[in-house]
């Protein structure tokens, strides 16, 4: 039976952590664990969620959880899955929560290896579009035009890597993009992924008030608007087929979406004539 936000598990599996007010990533983790329940084993590399959730003695996960090297999310998941299976245990779900840098940059090789092996794992990338934990440096998933501390004036000159296309090309069994602004869609995709034996990848947009420059009570609204204006899409890939889950309802408002965020404000002298080239 399809789960909705209303009948989510009342128990909390990720709480008491140190995430910033308005953090989109912590909402993505919290909701995913409510769907997956106590048989989930969480695996987190260096990044925002490990930095806020694993501060001894204040440990924020109530299920089994492990912190991994930055590049090793998928390979540690592989080992846990194989080890538990070797012990004769089969009712569990190894789930990874890695940020955009940990996924699209440093962790890409290990993720490719896990997809290649067809390991039965669920990899969730919470995408806040830069290395937020270490001070808002540009990642491979920072969008075109977004300022970060390493693209300080002109904004990123590169478009986001298309992670869904990358994992699809690697032969992933199920891939989906989601947004914390469309929670029921996200919940449905986690539930669906958990029911599939194979390598599953969910990429969830998780806005960051600190890094993006918006008020802490706007996180969910921004995450929703990103989909509505077409800055982010809700897609699914399964059995070699792509599906768009939602048409952008107001693509004409892309500029409004960008104007709400400090990261897209480029001073006049740094604006280039061929802005947004390639779009």
């Amino acid at each position: 039976m399809a789960m909705s936000a209303r009948d989510l598990d009342k128990r909390e599996f990720f709480f008491g952590h140190k995430a910033c007010a308005g953090c989109g990533g912590s909402l993505a983790v919290r909701i995913a664990l409510k769907v997956l329940g106590e048989r989930a084993v969480s695996v987190l590399p260096a990044g925002c969620m490990s930095a806020v959730g694993f501060n001894f003695p204040q440990l924020a996960f109530t299920n089994n959880a492990f912190i991994t090297p930055f590049a090793a999310t998928a390979s540690v998941m592989t080992g846990i899955e194989a080890g538990l299976r070797q012990r004769g245990i089969d009712d569990f779900q190894v789930v990874g929560f890695a940020g955009d840098g940990g996924t699209a940059d440093i962790g890409l090789q290990a993720l490719s290896g896990a997809i290649d092996r067809g390991d039965n794992i669920l990899y969730i990338c919470y995408d806040n579009e830069a290395y937020m934990n270490t001070g808002i440096q540009k990642s491979g998933l920072t969008p075109y035009g977004a300022k970060t501390t390493t693209t300080p004036y002109k904004g990123s000159r590169r478009h986001k890597k298309d992670m869904l296309a990358i994992v699809a090309a690697n032969g992933v069994d199920y891939a989906a993009s989601a947004s914390i602004g469309y929670l029921e869609d996200y919940i449905r995709k986690i539930e669906k992924a958990a029911g599939i034996t194979g390598t599953k990848y969910i990429h969830v947009l998780a806005p960051c008030p600190v890094g993006w420059g918006f008020k802490t009570d706007e996180t969910v609204d921004i995450a929703r608007e990103a989909v509505d204006v077409g800055a982010w899409s809700l897609r699914e890939y399964e059995n070699g087929e792509w599906k768009l889950n939602r048409e952008p309802s107001r693509p004409q408002d892309l500029e409004l979406y960008m104007k709400r965020q400090g990261r897209f404000k480029i001073e006049k002298q740094y604006q280039e004539e061929n802005n947004y080239a390639g779009e």
Partner: peptide, 27 residues
């Protein structure tokens, strides 16, 4: 009686060994 994991790098080899050890088996 063992599971043989094919890895793409040494970094992943030891990471997978660590995950399996955490899962409770000899690695």
């Amino acid at each position: 009686d063992a599971e043989f994991i094919h890895v793409e790098s040494e970094h992943s080899a030891l990471s997978a060994a660590m995950g399996a050890s955490l899962a409770g088996v000899r690695t």
